[in-house]
Design a protein around this nucleic acid. Structure first.
Lengths: 204, 204
DNA sequence: GTCTATACGAGGATAGAC
DNA sequence: GTCTATCCTCGTATAGAC
């Protein structure tokens, strides 16, 4: 148990500042200096800990992926039906966004869009997020639809998710999430047949 | 009839270079110098024609919107059914992308993502593209579904479109377009009822 | 209308002390 | 491990000639 830790280490403060600033203004547009100022740390500390700016971005993305995974987990556990778990990414996104109103959309797609040729360590994080998205949707789709339709359903819900985050970037965020969620529901209703609605459960 | 026009004016060459470079590497990451070099023009010419870098970006987006509108038009005319016209954005995107393989995704969403607070002239172009997207989808949705469901259908197809372009950014482009198109078909089949498939026509 | 040359600031990264 | 101070490159924009 840590007693009276006056100050978190500079590494932690840098990561927090990077997340708060870079995922709002964009990883490219945010200068290292501004992150340093917010963190109350020096340039030398940043470069000794993370190597360069890309290293800081990758570390911030890694932390973000952990947080997002937990938020998604919580929404999944709150669901009480197969479709509820498949749709859980949308309530998770809604909750997550409300805690981060300054952020326009997704830290991962935002980074992918901002950097033409990302460094290896950043690519790893982007792939990890993509893998998480598709693996989970595939698993839940299997519970909702038959195994022969599961991959197709998961792929289509992934389109709905990506459309949602880009809709957040281009317009009103709550509206975008509501529309994306609606698309997911329409997809399930269509792909699992008329009876699909019966699977929806009470968590909606 | 122009005879022996040795060289297009520098303004034209600057616009072409801006499109070729900025919409590939990103509007922020592409330095003005590189555009100047490609265009074979000088900095003074750029700033006297467009005011500043943002002005060049806005002008390039304006030109891009014209081109994209025409490409979409062509796909619409090639369609021979109401649903074919609603889905036409996907073949249009496929054709458009094949002519611009170096571009990862959408010039408009890419610009929206790259710039945190876009200048007024850039915002105008982003809004114009958004307006085009929703107005057209709304019109075609009216032909496919009843007027009471048209807005809902259009909104959902818009999610499919945005999910498609972001899917292009994050993964394989052809795969992303195929999946987005499939989502649109599923949405129509579901929202216009079982008979929806009958409306599909022969253009698919 | 277009060019050459340059001013000016910003941003990423490092050296060396404590 | 962290700080102060600094270097140096890059990028936007302008001045003035042709």
């Amino acid at each position: 148990m840590i007693s009276h830790a006056r100050k978190r280490p500079a590494r932690e403060r840098l990561l927090a500042a990077a997340e708060e600033l870079m995922f709002v203004d964009g990883v490219v547009l945010t200068p290292v200096d501004v992150v340093l100022k917010r963190a109350g740390a020096s340039a030398a500390t940043l470069y000794s800990n993370f190597g360069n700016k890309d290293g800081l971005i990758a570390a911030a993305l890694e932390r973000r992926l952990t947080d997002w995974t937990q938020a998604w987990d919580a929404a999944i556990e709150a669901a009480d039906s197969p479709t509820g778990r498949l749709f859980a990414i949308f309530p998770a996104l809604r909750t997550y966004q409300r805690e981060r109103l300054a952020e326009r959309w997704c830290a991962f797609s935002g980074t992918a869009a901002a950097i033409y040729r990302p460094s290896e360590e950043i690519v790893e994080m982007l792939e990890a997020e993509d893998e998480l998205l598709h693996a989970r949707l595939r698993a839940f789709a299997g519970e909702v639809a038959g195994e022969d339709r599961a991959q197709d359903l998961a792929d289509q819900v992934a389109v709905a998710y990506l459309g949602t985050i880009t809709g957040m970037l281009r317009g009103d965020q709550e509206t975008a999430i509501a529309r994306g969620e609606l698309v997911a529901r329409t997809l399930v209703a269509s792909l699992v047949g008329e009876g699909g609605a019966d699977l929806l459960g009470s968590d909606e």
